[in-house]
Computed example of a mutant assay.
Amino acid sequence: MSDASNYYGPVVNMHGGRENIGINYGTAGGPARDTELGAAVEELTRLLGELRRHLSPEQERTVDEALPELVPDRTALRRNGLVLASVAQIAAAVGAVGQPVADAVGRLLGLLAQ
């Protein structure tokens, strides 16, 4: 057995230079995609506000915890995939009234997959 550790993920080696910032994952999609992402996050946030009156107190608490995580940033949304899963689960649990939220989560996931 070896004592070596395996690391799976990006590796950045920078030698010299000035004002190096590392890897920027947030703008790889370009301005048009970022605008779409922002619109999708805004729509989901609006729909969650409309859905609140149909939620149990526990579901409402979960939505309250999810809202700060819903930001138009690809890296943050990908990292917080459980937040979107929780929102989708709540939308499914409330039935037909939650369908617009489930659809909005689907659109957002589609944008993140691009």
Rank of each mutant, 00 (worst) to 15 (best):
A88N: 05
Q59M: 12
V94S: 08
V12Y: 12
E50K: 10
R33Q: 13
E58C: 08
E36G: 09
G110N: 14
A92L: 05
A66V: 03
R78D: 00
E19H: 15
G16W: 11
V11S: 12
P72Y: 07
N6I: 12
L51N: 00
A66R: 02
L48V: 02
T27I: 08
A91S: 13
G110K: 11
V87Q: 00
R33T: 03
R78M: 10
A88W: 00
I23T: 12
Q114R: 13
E50R: 13
P68H: 01
S86K: 15
L55Q: 07
A4F: 09
H15Y: 14
E60N: 09
R52F: 05
P68W: 03
G38D: 12
V105L: 06
E19W: 15
G95S: 08
Y7G: 04
L67W: 02
T45N: 07
L111A: 03
L55E: 02
T75A: 13
P57A: 13
A66P: 01
D3N: 07
L70G: 02
A88C: 07
R53N: 09
G9I: 08
S2D: 05
R61D: 05
A66S: 09
D64R: 15
G26V: 08
E69R: 13
G110S: 14
L108I: 06
G17D: 06
N13K: 15
P100G: 03
Q59L: 07
P72Q: 07
V71R: 06
H15N: 13
G26S: 09
L112N: 03
G49F: 04
M14Y: 13
L51D: 00
G22I: 09
A113I: 03
L37T: 04
E36L: 13
E50V: 08
V101H: 01
Q114A: 02
V41A: 07
R33W: 09
A66W: 00
D34F: 08
T62E: 04
V63W: 00
H15M: 10
R18E: 05
E50F: 15
G106L: 09
E36T: 12
L77R: 03
T35V: 14
L44N: 02
D73R: 11
R18D: 04
G29V: 03
V87C: 01
Y8R: 15
D103R: 09
I23L: 15
E69Q: 10
S5E: 11
R46T: 03
Y7A: 04
Q89S: 09
V94W: 08
